[in-house]
Design a binder for these strands. Sequence first.
DNA 1: ATTTCTGGTTATAATGTTTATTAGGTTAGA
DNA 2: TCTAACCTAATAAACATTATAACCAGAAAT
Lengths: 138, 138
Amino acid sequence: MDNKIKRLKEKGIVLTIQRMAVLDMLHNCSNHPTVEEIHKKLLKKYPTLSLATVYNTLEMLKQAGEIQELNIGKEKRFESLLESHHHFYCLVCERIIDLEIACPTFKAGEIDGHKIESMQAIFYGTCADCREKGKDNA
Amino acid sequence: MDNKIKRLKEKGIVLTIQRMAVLDMLHNCSNHPTVEEIHKKLLKKYPTLSLATVYNTLEMLKQAGEIQELNIGKEKRFESLLESHHHFYCLVCERIIDLEIACPTFKAGEIDGHKIESMQAIFYGTCADCREKGKDNA
DNA sequence: ATTTCTGGTTATAATGTTTATTAGGTTAGA
DNA sequence: TCTAACCTAATAAACATTATAACCAGAAAT
């Protein structure tokens, strides 16, 4: 927890209350909230927090490598970056589920001469819960 | 080429000039154009083509499984669906490069009980050209 | 051939997300 | 304390996308 702060300070990033709030919220969050959801939730504790600040902070934390941005639906979603993992998007219930799988191409660090720095894989289909309930998409 | 038409007709989709134009354009297109780019290019040949029609047509073709939507930058991008492949996004020159790799998880068709219908993997990094030119992002 | 109906296209308005701007406030260092 | 740099808040603006309504074309039926 404090190594996050240390890392950011080393990058010359000023740690304001607003930034810490966003970072903490994402860290204690198991789902993948949109910007609007993050803002709405933090407003309860910090009623003056501006939406623009949330956007700025998320962009900065992303640049600093502390959080990850997901391009799944129309709205961008964010999550704290723990370790490399991927996502399953259920076409039925629209949930996003974390997947603990490894990609051999990513591990190689390179493909066709292109240097890989990060990757993001999204699987689409019907999640186990929806299959059980017979809501199969087929 | 005519099997595309046949497939769409079998799905009960009316093949208008506008829809054919979008489909043909994507088929003869090696890059991954945005909606705006598709519209602008087709306007040269069909000056009255509406942007809304392009949106509608792309959505329909996507539903019909004839084209694929990419969520890479801010704007959605589209490409004709040839075979399953993935993408490399160069953080330096912002190009999108097709990758001919296979994902073992996708091949399995299932992960953690979730049924996989499609997937999309995006690798981020520095492409071979930019590495050669010394524009490495590091 | 004319009418009617269905569905597509166009043009435009509306929505919603994201970015830019500006003014004011806060922090860190001299 | 003073200053400079930076952050925040509020608002406006830009941009992509969707919804709406009027118009039009082609097919089916009379």
